[in-house]
C-alpha cells in the first residue's frame, strides 16, 4: 500500500484544467447566443422617426447592447448549470474536496467571464463594421465615441467584470437551488417582484441604486474594485452554503 500526498493547489489546477476540457460546450452556446444577438442588432434596435418642416427624419441607433445582454444571460445560466448535481458528482469521481471543487469552479467562471467579455466586445465592433458596410454613408452620422486601444481595453475589462458578476450571481442562485428545490420557484418570484416593486430608500428604488452603484461608477479602478469585491463576496457566500453538501445521495 502506498499513500500519496496532494496539495490543494495541485488539485485545484487539475480540476480547473479538467473543467476547461469537460465544459467546452458552454462556449459553443456562448458563440451561438452572440451570433443571434448580432443578427438582432444589425437591424438597429432603436428607431425614432418624425416629420416636420417638409422633411422625413428617421434616426437609427446601432448599439451592441443586445450582445452584451445575451452574454450576461449566458453567464448567469452557465454558472447555474455547473452547480447542478451531475456536474458536482463528476468532480468526486476524481480527487477533490468541496473546497477545491469551489475554487476550480470559480477559476473556470473567471475564465469564462474573460472569454465572454472579450468576445462580446469584439462581436460588438463586428456589429459596427457590418453596419458600416451595409449602410448608406450619406446617412451615417458618426460613432458615438472614438475607438482607441485604451477604449477597447477598458471595454473588455469592464464587460468581463460585469459578466463575472453575473456568473457569481448565477452560481449563488444555483447553489441555493441545490440546497432546496423550492427555491426554483421562490427565486424568480423574488427577482421579478423586486424589479417591479423595488424597495425605496430616500425616494430612490433599491434596484436603481444598485444600477447606479455599478453602472454609474465612472472611475475605472473604483469600478473594478466594486465588481471584484462583489463577485468575491458572492463566491464566498456560495462556498459557505455548500461546504457540507453531500454528493451521490
Amino acid at each position: 500500500m502506498s499513500l500519496n500526498k496532494v496539495t490543494t493547489r495541485q488539485i485545484v489546477m487539475k480540476q480547473y484544467q479538467y473543467k476547461l476540457k469537460a465544459y467546452y460546450q458552454v462556449f459553443n452556446s456562448m458563440v451561438i447566443l452572440q451570433v443571434i444577438a448580432l443578427l438582432f442588432s444589425t437591424g438597429g434596435i432603436m428607431f425614432r422617426g418624425g416629420r416636420g418642416f417638409g422633411l422625413d427624419i428617421s434616426l437609427n441607433t446601432y448599439t451592441a447592447d443586445m450582445i452584451i445582454i445575451f452574454t450576461f444571460l449566458w453567464a448567469f445560466i452557465n454558472a447555474i448549470t455547473i452547480t447542478t448535481k451531475a456536474y458536482r458528482e463528476d468532480d468526486f469521481i476524481f480527487v477533490t474536496n468541496r473546497q477545491t471543487q469551489h475554487l476550480s469552479n470559480m477559476l473556470f467562471l473567471i475564465t469564462a467571464s474573460v472569454i465572454g467579455g472579450v468576445t462580446a466586445v469584439l462581436v460588438g465592433y463586428l456589429n459596427d463594421i457590418i453596419f458600416f458596410f451595409t449602410t448608406d454613408p450619406k446617412t451615417f452620422a458618426g460613432y458615438s465615441e472614438l475607438i482607441t486601444p485604451f477604449d477597447v481595453l477598458t471595454g473588455v475589462v469592464a464587460t468581463s467584470l460585469y459578466v463575472l458578476m453575473f456568473c457569481a450571481a448565477g452560481y449563488l442562485v444555483g447553489v441555493i437551488i441545490q440546497l432546496n428545490r423550492i427555491f426554483t420557484v421562490i427565486i424568480p418570484v423574488l427577482i421579478i417582484g423586486f424589479l417591479i416593486v423595488g424597495g425605496q430608500t430616500e425616494g430612490i428604488p433599491v434596484n436603481v441604486r444598485i444600477y447606479l452603484f455599478y453602472v454609474g461608477e465612472t472611475d475605472v479602478l473604483l469600478f473594478m474594485l466594486k465588481s471584484l469585491v462583489t463577485s468575491a463576496l458572492i463566491f464566498a457566500g456560495s462556498f459557505f452554503l455548500l461546504r457540507n453538501k453531500e454528493v451521490r445521495v
Binding site: 499513500l3 500519496n4 490543494t8 469537460a22 463528476d90 477533490t96 473546497q99 451521490r248
Partner: peptide, 22 residues
C-alpha cells in the same frame, strides 16, 4: 472534505456518472 482521503480512496458503484463531454 479530506483531500488526502480523496486522493487515496475511491468508491466505484453502478450509479457513477462520468462527465458526458469526455
Amino acid at each position: 472534505n479530506s483531500l488526502y482521503a480523496s486522493a487515496n480512496s475511491i468508491l466505484i458503484d453502478d450509479q457513477m456518472l462520468f462527465p458526458e463531454a469526455l
